[in-house]
């Protein structure tokens, strides 16, 4: 109670530092064990908002560690993070962001703005630079948030480089080892397809996203893909101006089978 306020009001990282609980900084060198990696994630704009998707596979070298990773994380009710890279670092970043955004909202009695959220992730990436440069803690995330400065509020997509540079995507972004395939298909669909991604309804967008992952998995062994017969689906989340919704495995199954309703 008598302790001074955080140097930057509402900043949770400052609170951690003041409480001497700052995140440990690792210095690594030499050859280490194969690092677990998470791939492939993407986001695109559709008629109702933004769909953010990720396969469920994590690999370490040529080993499949698991096919049950959740790479699309709800940070708060108006932000999503998609993780590509080293999960150990990426999930910690997600946890810091979740706590930071809620801490700011509760302590300052107003939500953090979208530009501040985008920069908060950039700051974490910059702080992770030593590990990224050594190639053991690299994270290349995607971020989606709602811009409340325009009317009506609009969801937006951002992508980053490993050092923290942030870029706003117009209609889509992808990251991870399978992202080349995904970006190519998205570019083709946007230019020549019908419907274009931005015109798709929710069931169309879900089906399209699942097929994107299936195709990426054809060319990239680190991408888990989707296999309805094995009950293997993706993580799909929708960001609308009104909030976040998770697309369940039942909904994904129905979308692939064409038994959903457009």
């Amino acid at each position: 109670m008598s302790t001074p306020a955080t140097p930057l009001a509402g900043d949770f990282v400052s609170l951690l530092q003041r409480s001497q609980m700052a995140l440990p900084r690792m210095e690594l060198g030499g050859d280490g064990p194969a690092i677990t990696q998470a791939t492939t994630v993407f986001a695109f704009r559709f008629a109702e908002g933004i769909l953010m998707a990720g396969d469920r596979r994590a690999t370490a070298g040529n080993i499949i560690v698991t096919d049950a990773v959740e790479k699309v994380v709800e940070i708060d009710d108006s932000s999503l993070l998609a993780i590509a890279g080293v999960p150990a670092t990426a999930f910690e970043m997600a946890r810091v962001l979740q706590t930071s955004f809620e801490y700011y909202r509760r302590s300052q009695l107003q939500p953090l703005s979208l530009p501040a959220k985008v920069r908060a992730l950039a700051r974490l990436l910059r702080e992770n630079m030593p590990l990224a440069l050594q190639g053991v803690g690299i994270v290349v995330p995607l971020f989606a948030g709602v811009d409340h400065t325009v009317s009506p509020a609009q969801p937006r997509i951002y992508f980053y480089d490993p050092l923290g540079a942030q870029f706003q995507a117009v209609n889509y972004a992808a990251s991870g080892s399978g992202s080349g395939t995904i970006r190519s298909i998205l570019a083709f669909q946007e230019r020549h397809g019908s419907p274009k991604p931005v015109e798709m309804t929710l069931p169309e967008a879900v089906r399209f996203a699942l097929r994107l992952l299936m195709t990426a998995a054809e060319f990239d062994s680190a991408t888990g893909g989707v296999n309805p017969e094995a009950q293997l689906f993706a993580t799909l989340k929708i960001l609308r101006a009104t909030g976040v919704e998770t697309v369940t495995e039942e909904q994904q199954s129905a979308a692939l089978a064409g038994t959903d309703h457009d």
Binding site: M1, A5, L15, V96, S107
Partner: peptide, 17 residues
């Protein structure tokens, strides 16, 4: 405000750590 902030700080540190 002081009490509110103290409670929020303590709760978030606990939840994070």
């Amino acid at each position: 405000e002081r009490i509110r902030q103290a409670a929020i700080d303590a709760a978030h540190l606990e939840a994070f750590t």
